[in-house]
Design a protein around this nucleic acid. Sequence first.
DNA 1: CTTCGTCAAGAGCAGCGCTCTCTAAACACT
DNA 2: AGTGTTTAGAGAGCGCTGCTCTTGACGAAG
Lengths: 232, 232
Amino acid sequence: MNASRTARERVRAELIKEITDIARRQLATEGAGGLSLRAVAREMGMVSSAIYRYFPSRDDLLTALIIDGYNALGEAVEHADAACARDDFTGRWLAVCRAVREWALAHPHEYALLYGSPVPGYAAPQDTVAPAVRDTAVYGRIIADAHHAGRLAPPPVCPPPPAVLAQDAEVVRALMPDVPDDVVARAIIAWTGLFGMVSFELFGQFNNTITHRTELFDHNMTCLARLIGLPE
Amino acid sequence: MNASRTARERVRAELIKEITDIARRQLATEGAGGLSLRAVAREMGMVSSAIYRYFPSRDDLLTALIIDGYNALGEAVEHADAACARDDFTGRWLAVCRAVREWALAHPHEYALLYGSPVPGYAAPQDTVAPAVRDTAVYGRIIADAHHAGRLAPPPVCPPPPAVLAQDAEVVRALMPDVPDDVVARAIIAWTGLFGMVSFELFGQFNNTITHRTELFDHNMTCLARLIGLPE
DNA sequence: CTTCGTCAAGAGCAGCGCTCTCTAAACACT
DNA sequence: AGTGTTTAGAGAGCGCTGCTCTTGACGAAG
């Protein structure tokens, strides 16, 4: 009875995967706004209403794509980090930055779904928060590792962070344990700087201006690494 | 004959303004995806097809809103800069950063239109590039002013920018004349850092994490000012 | 007074998300 | 093996969208 039950559920899981695959392909060509359940159904040789057996609404399909996206990006970042020597902290940071950028360039619409304008009327459900921090956890660990190895020497550039930020630092520290507040603050600057850079490139702000984007990116990420205090 | 001709054109211009006003209000409540020509027409007591006399397509209306948005942001930034003492370069930088953030928080959907995910299938026409750099010109001038006043003392954090970036720096220098390449490079870091920060806050990346956003923003922008070399 | 360009109106097309009902197949249980 | 239940897909349909085309009215110019 269990085997037969899983038989039905297996074909169901397969169909769900097929739907998300087609949806992801449509996302890549049309963008989030052009994602159409009817088009997905058409491509599957299904009638549109049948899709609703698997995803109760378009938003639920979007949620599935978002979770997949966070996981794909997280995996790429984890992979890039794992390929580096553990004590090459700056190398790990740069590898992670490049992994983010390369994944974003390879999957622009998925990146836009994760880090671009929120889809109007769509509120990310709780299921997305765990995959969402998967990449963040990686560079949190890099910075924490460097700090604990005594290799973090922040230059005297930033003033000490204001006291109220200590509460927020407490939350962020879940990703980079036992790290002082000023390191957390610098980490956030680097974090927003990384994604600001990628978003600007992807969303067209560099058009007609920046042509050597890889070089600029590497240079800026190196600067941010120095700002954090990562070794030369 | 001229007077009568402008009579007709005047009511036309007025209608165009009314359309964009209503569209902007709809944008604020529904977001870019929810902008509907029919809804605008309904609110104007017009029939939907009549709108096409004034805006040949939804994209053209979007373009008008984008241009207005860039101009509004540019104006806010110019105003914030003008309120500072000319030689208080750090104060001017902070004022400009805050102006960007406050404008973005006050007009989230318009900000998303300018700096969020590009609308799929929509390519920004050439008319948008001039208003688009209006704000950028302001902080370009701040940094250039500080440099020429001899008040720019970049800390020894960033390595010298790679030689290939000199070409791109040439283009950027149109906004900050006679400034060396390494200053341009730092300016770009600060620029992307500013918008990375605003976008993260606005697009929800700080949810469940950062609560003291004003303080964090001010602190980070101060750090970036130091990184550029703006005086204490 | 006629001609001509401009404009609102209306109908209509194809597409969308989503809901409802109906039929048929796969399943669980006696 | 037969029976009741659950699950799946098909189809029609609702109200909405952007957009097109045609029609008829209005006002300015010759």
